[in-house]
Design a protein around this nucleic acid. Sequence first.
DNA 1: GATGAATGAGGTTTCATTCAT
DNA 2: GATGAATGAAACCTCATTCAT
Lengths: 217, 217, 217, 217
Amino acid sequence: MAKRNKEVTRQRILDAAIDVFSDKGYNGALVDDITKRSDTSKGAFYFHFPSKKSIFKALLGTLVERIVAEVDKAVEENNGAELKIEAALETVLSIFSKHEKATRLLFLEATGLGKVFDEEVFAAHQKFAAVISGYLQSAIDDGSIAPLDTQLTAFAWLGAIHEVMLMNFLSPTSPSLTEFVKPLKGLLLSALTRIPSNMRTDRDAIVSTSASTIDYN
Amino acid sequence: MAKRNKEVTRQRILDAAIDVFSDKGYNGALVDDITKRSDTSKGAFYFHFPSKKSIFKALLGTLVERIVAEVDKAVEENNGAELKIEAALETVLSIFSKHEKATRLLFLEATGLGKVFDEEVFAAHQKFAAVISGYLQSAIDDGSIAPLDTQLTAFAWLGAIHEVMLMNFLSPTSPSLTEFVKPLKGLLLSALTRIPSNMRTDRDAIVSTSASTIDYN
Amino acid sequence: MAKRNKEVTRQRILDAAIDVFSDKGYNGALVDDITKRSDTSKGAFYFHFPSKKSIFKALLGTLVERIVAEVDKAVEENNGAELKIEAALETVLSIFSKHEKATRLLFLEATGLGKVFDEEVFAAHQKFAAVISGYLQSAIDDGSIAPLDTQLTAFAWLGAIHEVMLMNFLSPTSPSLTEFVKPLKGLLLSALTRIPSNMRTDRDAIVSTSASTIDYN
Amino acid sequence: MAKRNKEVTRQRILDAAIDVFSDKGYNGALVDDITKRSDTSKGAFYFHFPSKKSIFKALLGTLVERIVAEVDKAVEENNGAELKIEAALETVLSIFSKHEKATRLLFLEATGLGKVFDEEVFAAHQKFAAVISGYLQSAIDDGSIAPLDTQLTAFAWLGAIHEVMLMNFLSPTSPSLTEFVKPLKGLLLSALTRIPSNMRTDRDAIVSTSASTIDYN
DNA sequence: GATGAATGAGGTTTCATTCAT
DNA sequence: GATGAATGAAACCTCATTCAT
C-alpha cells in the first residue's frame, strides 16, 4: 500500500473487517483476510489494533452507535408521522436493511463466540432495545398507545426483526430485506393497543408498567 | 474408560458435546473437552463421528427433532385449553426453558459459524417455525383467530422468544427463563385478533392469507 | 467372517496384505485396509502377526523364497536351452512379470522405509542377485561365457530389470511387463562375451573373477 | 532464528529437508525435524511451503535439474574423451557419487510412497534417462557405436546404477560409491558394440533403432 | 480364534501475534 | 507508520495397537 494518512489506513482496515467478519464469521475471518482486503499489512493492522478481538469489539461498538444515531436522526426528521412509534419502527427496519453487512455482523456473527464477547453483544442489543423501548415509552406517555412492558416488547421486537433477517440471510433464495419491512411492521404494531386521540387521558403520571420486573441490568 | 456398549458410548459423547458446545461455543469447544467430559477418548470420538463438524450437525438435527416431538406431545395432551395456540405457545416456551442447554446451542452457538452450517441452522429454525405456524394455521382454520401471515408470524415469534432467551443468557443477573413465559405469551398473543366463538364463521375454505408471499425456501 | 481354519485365516490376511501393500505402499496401507480386504478383523490380524511391521517382513521373506523357488524350478525344467544363462534370465523376467504385485512390493514399496527394513530389503535383493550370479557363474564355469564380476553383473541386471519394471508401473500408459522381456534380455546378454563351443577351455579351476572385491556382506 | 533474507530461509529449509528426507525417508521425516535442522520454525516452513508433500515434490524437481545440469556441464568440458558416451557415463556416476544424499532421496526415498508421488518420480527418472539416452544417440549418430534401443538402454543403465548404489547404501559395510564407478562403467559399456573409427559410415540418416517401440509416456 | 470398540501418542497444519527492517 | 517473514502454541485428526467379550 502506498503511504497514506494514518486515519485513512485505520478506516480501510475497519471497513475491510466489516466485510470479512460478516462474510466468514469471527472465527472464520483471518487477520490476513482483513489485511488483504484492506490492501494493508499485518504490521498496519497491529499498529492500529492491539488484537483481532479488539477490532471486533471496536466494530460492534461503532456500528451500534452509528446505526442508533441514524435512527434517531431519521425519526426526528420524520416526526410528521401520525404515530411516532410507527415511524421509528419503519426507520429501524429500513436502516437494518440498508446496512445488511453491519447488521449481519451485529446480530449473527457476534453471537455464540463464548464469554469473551458476551458483554459487548449484550450491550449492543441493549442499545437497540433502548431505542425501541424509548419510542414505545413516549407513545405511552402521550397516550397514543396503552401501557405495556416496554423492555420486554423492545426485546421481542428486536428478536422478531433479527429472526426474519436471519432467515433471510440463510435462505438459499434470499430476497431483499426491504420486502419484509411492511408486513413485519404491521405484525409488530398489531400487538399494540392504539388509543383514539379523543379518548386519550394524560398519562404523564404513569412512568411504566411492567408485567415482568426483571432487571436487565 | 472400560469397554461398554457401542451405543452407550456414542450417547455419552453426544451428551458431553451438548454440554461443551453450549458452554464454549463451537469454536471454543475442543474435541478434547468433549472426550474428557464424556470420559472416553479421542479415538472413541473419531470412531463414532468423522469430524467435529459432523457431531455438531448431528446434534443440531437430533435436538430439533427431540424438542419438536416433545412440543407436539405436550400440546396434544393439553388440548383442553381454550385457545390451542395459547397452549402451544406455552408449551414451546416451557420446553425451551427446560432444555436451556440445547436451546442455547441451537439458537446461539450454531449461529455465526460461517457458511458451513448455514443449511443446518436454517433447517432447524424452519422446523420450529413450522410447528408454530402449524398451530397458528389451525387456529385460523377453526375460526378462533383472524387470518394472518402464519410464516412471518411464526418467525417473528421464534425471534422474539429467541431474543428474550438470549438476553437472559447474556445478562449478568440471568433469572430463570420461566419468569418470561407468562409475559412473553401475553405479548405475542396480543398481536392476534381473537374472534369470539359466537361470531366465528366456517373458515375451512380459506387456507391461508399471506400479506407477504415470500418463499422462505 | 465365518469360522475357518486357523491357517486359512492367516493366508487370507497375507494375500490381502500383498494387495494392499502393493497398492498403497507400506505407510499408506492401513491395518484396517488389510482386515477389510481379507474379510477378517483387527483381532485376527494381531492374533496372527504381532505387528504391521512383522507381516511386511514376513511377506518380503516369503515372496522372495517363493519366486526364487519358481525360478529354480523353471530353469531346471528348461535346461534344453542353448545358453543356460539365457534361460535363467528369461525365467526371472517372466516370473517377475507374472507376479507383478509381489514384485512391486519387493522392489518398490519395500524401499525407502528407513533403517527398520533395510536388512530385509538388502537380503531380498541379495537372494535374487545370488540366483542370477549363480547362473552366470555356472556359465563361466562351463566356459560358455567369458569370466566377469558376477556379483556386480547380477546387481546391475537386477537393477536394470527393476528400473524397467518401475517405469512400467509408473507410466500412465503402462503396457504389460511381458513386452519388455525380449528386448531387455537382448540388451543384458549383449554385455556378455559368448565363447563359441569349440573354443572353450575347462574353466573349472577358476571360481570367480571380481574386478571389484567389495564384500556385500 | 533471527530475521534473515526470505530466500535464504527458504534455501535453509530446502537444504535441511534433503538431509532429513534422505536420512529418514519421507514418512519418517517429521516437519519438526526439518525445522529443527534448519534452525527455523514450523511457521517458517509453512510460510514457504504449503505442505510436507509440496516441499518433497519441489525437492525432487530441483535436484534432478541441478544434477542434470551438472552432468551436462561436465560432459561438455570433458569432450576430449575418446568415446563421448564413456565420458558421460563416468560423469553421471561420479556426480551421483558426489551427491549421495540427493541421489538417495531421488532413487530410494521417493519410491513406494503411493500414487501421490508417482508422477514426480516418473518425471525424475525420465529426465535422467533422457540424458543418458541423448548421449547414446549422439554416439550412434556419429557412428562410434552400433544402433540400439536408446530408451531401453538408458533405463537399464539407470537401473543398474541405481541398484548398485542401493546395495551400497544398504550394505552394513558400505564402501564409497566411487569404488564402483570403474567396474560398473566397464560393464555397461561392454553392452555396446563399438565401431572402429575407420569402419564408420555416415549414420546421419538413421535416427534411432528400437527393438521395443514402447511409448514411455 | 475372532471380533471391533476403544486408546492415546504423535503427526500435520493453522493462525494470532511479534519484530527487524 | 508500514511491511511481511518468522514464531510457536494449540488444534484437529490418524492409526497401530490393545483387550473385554
